[in-house]
Simulated scan of single mutants.
Amino acid sequence: MTTPHTQHPVPRHPHAWIGWVVASQLLVVLLWWRLGWHWGVPALLLSHALFVVPVFLPWSGFYGPALVRLADVGQAVWLTIDDGPSDDTVPILDLLDRHGARATFFLVGARAQARPELVQEILRRGHGIGNHSHTHPQAHFWRLGPRAMAREIDAAQQALAQVAGAAPRWFRSVVGMTNPFVAASLRRHGLVRVAWCARGYDAVDGDPDRVLRRIESGLAPGAIVLLHEGAPHGASVRIVEAVLERLAERGYRSVVPPA
């Protein structure tokens, strides 16, 4: 099921942050000159923090807009499943079918190229796909430079377009980290960065009960729910099943916004 009136915030000014950097450093110089290092050093540290901290905040719009919640969807949520395709893909698709649910799978480009039949199966069953980088460099995605970042996003977009027959319109940053060089590629491809407002840390925690408690704390109409497949703990399918059951108990349906 699709949802109407969904905002699609494609970055409009991907380099706006440069002006803020210049302005902040000029302000630091002015403070240092007029008031001395006692004011200059704290101002310098604060100015750097203002540009570094947003990288690690998935919902931050400092380096470009992010879709955090759907509007006007009633008692519904958007299920998003990261890191596939994997051996978990088909069992998760079966669970979604059983519950009459729809989801968007944020796929890693290289993994999609290796298992194109799983991408086709996701689409055949009525679900959506999104770009989740080409190689999923989770340890250093946050610090990729402009060329490396462009390669990650561009290569995944090309791979997914070839496998799926159409380029995706959604993007999710690896581990939710978004540095200054993400927005330019998103604008070039017309991609919308999708964050979340309900997560259970299921990529690292295989206990369905703990994961459910964390997700429920963020559940509300229009919530974007973050889930994963193929996690090393091997419990991703059980976690997705538990989430679907809890959503049904609480009267939530799942929707996929139109691309």
Rank of each mutant, 00 (worst) to 15 (best):
M1G: 11
H5R: 14
R12G: 06
H13F: 15
H15G: 12
W17L: 04
V21Q: 07
V22R: 01
L26V: 10
L27P: 15
W32Q: 08
W32V: 07
W33I: 10
H38Q: 14
W39R: 14
L46I: 13
V52H: 07
L57W: 05
L57A: 06
F62K: 04
G64R: 03
L70Y: 11
G74I: 04
D82R: 12
D83Q: 12
D87V: 12
V90E: 12
G100H: 10
A103V: 07
F106S: 01
V108R: 07
A114V: 07
A114Q: 14
R115Y: 03
R115A: 06
L123M: 12
G126E: 02
G130C: 07
H132S: 11
A139H: 15
A139L: 10
H140D: 14
R143P: 00
R143E: 02
P146A: 11
R147T: 11
R147E: 13
D154N: 14
A159T: 07
L160H: 09
L160S: 06
A161M: 03
A167I: 06
W170N: 05
V174L: 08
V175Y: 04
G176P: 12
N179V: 08
N179M: 06
P180T: 05
S185D: 05
R187S: 02
R188N: 01
G190H: 11
A195N: 03
R199W: 03
D207P: 03
D209Y: 02
R210I: 00
V211P: 00
I215L: 13
A220M: 01
P221I: 05
A223S: 07
I224L: 00
L226M: 10
L227T: 09
G230E: 03
H233Q: 03
R246M: 14
R246I: 13
L247E: 10
A248E: 06
Y252K: 06
V256C: 03
P258G: 15
